[in-house]
Design a protein around this nucleic acid. Structure first.
Lengths: 199, 199
DNA sequence: GTCTATACTTTGATAGAC
DNA sequence: GTCTATCAAAGTATAGAC
């Protein structure tokens, strides 16, 4: 953490280039996505909603994809206050509870993630690859601990459980976006039940 | 089944309009995706690979999205031979084992699904909404049966398990596409372990 | 450093010729 | 039934004003 953050969010080099203004644009972009969702988010429309020209956006971000990834990364970082929970099913449920209030950003996440699959080399690809790697490692370690403490059943691989948690969250979000009747939180609670050791 | 199929795959009306030629194009498009994956799949590139003009494609399909949905729907239907398994974790594992051989089509599925989230009304949206609805209902019923037979633990909701199975499959596919080291089949096997009743 | 103006390229889509 | 021509919109890139 520290100087790597810049690249993840998309800054060009180590020299800050209009950091304040850039941050301003980023914050406004987040608002745009939070309100209007992810529909019709061309560079020109985003620029229009923010009140600048589309070329101005490209002055701070190398490409549309980079802007979008930066928007998501920033939004994620903004509410990154794990309330004393260890990474695992509880944090996923916590995130789900928050996400139901910001469907626009959830859509942004899902579409960006899928778009990153299309090209072997892209900003999004690197971002999400790294994100999943870190997430899986962190959750795996946390689950292994909880297994030792008897909080999670230990007859299954912690690595698999970690990947499963993430996959279930991502997949359920999509089902929920398509049909809000799908219980995002309650279904994850059920997954939590599956994880508990036999009493 | 029967006359509804037309709309799902994207045919305009009941009158067949060059059905044979259309099918030919569809089959070749599937090959294109199977080989070259989903990268750079503009209408013009697909047309070029098939050997026609992009306008010709739009003669048979109303839009690019409709063509892509038709390609996926056709590909899915082609290998729809459930080997005497009841819908549930086993069929998902079976599908996973098949999908690792056709990453291009898995990518097509993931990107199409995500793209359908962006607009409230689109061919993809309707297609995937219906697909998930049918899938969930079918699997839920099958799981409920298996619960009664003591094959699946019955202390959790069959509806939730159904949504979880689908979500886990979709989510794991994405993780696997980003990092082939993620064990698609083995992780689903672990989910299967979670579903078994306490011995 | 910040941004407007502008143009280049590709895209999905339409219209009309053959 | 399939093409060529054409369109509007999009992402991108550059030049240069301030």
């Amino acid at each position: 953490m520290g100087q790597d953050e810049d690249e993840v969010i998309g800054r060009r080099g180590s020299r800050p280039k209009g950091v304040a203004r850039r941050q301003e644009i980023l914050d406004r972009a987040i608002e745009v996505f939070r309100e209007r969702g992810a529909s019709g988010t061309s560079l020109r429309r985003i620029a229009e909603a923010i009140g600048v020209s589309h070329a101005a956006l490209l002055h701070y971000f190398d490409s549309r994809e980079q802007l979008l990834v930066a928007v998501y990364a920033q939004a994620e970082q903004n509410h990154e206050n794990p309330p004393d929970l260890r990474p695992g099913i509880d944090t996923m449920i916590h995130a789900a509870r928050r996400n139901v209030g910001i469907p626009g950003l959830v859509t942004l996440y899902s579409t960006l993630l899928a778009a990153s699959l299309e090209s072997e080399e892209s900003v999004g690809r690197d971002f999400f690859s790294a994100r999943f790697e870190v997430l899986r490692r962190t959750i795996t370690e946390s689950i292994r601990q909880q297994q030792e403490e008897g909080l999670v059943r230990d007859d299954v691989s912690a690595e698999h459980l970690s990947a499963l948690l993430i996959a279930a969250s991502d997949g359920l979000q999509i089902q929920w976006l398509l049909d809000p009747a799908v219980g995002l939180e309650s279904t994850l609670q059920t997954l939590g039940t599956l994880l508990r050791p036999r009493a």
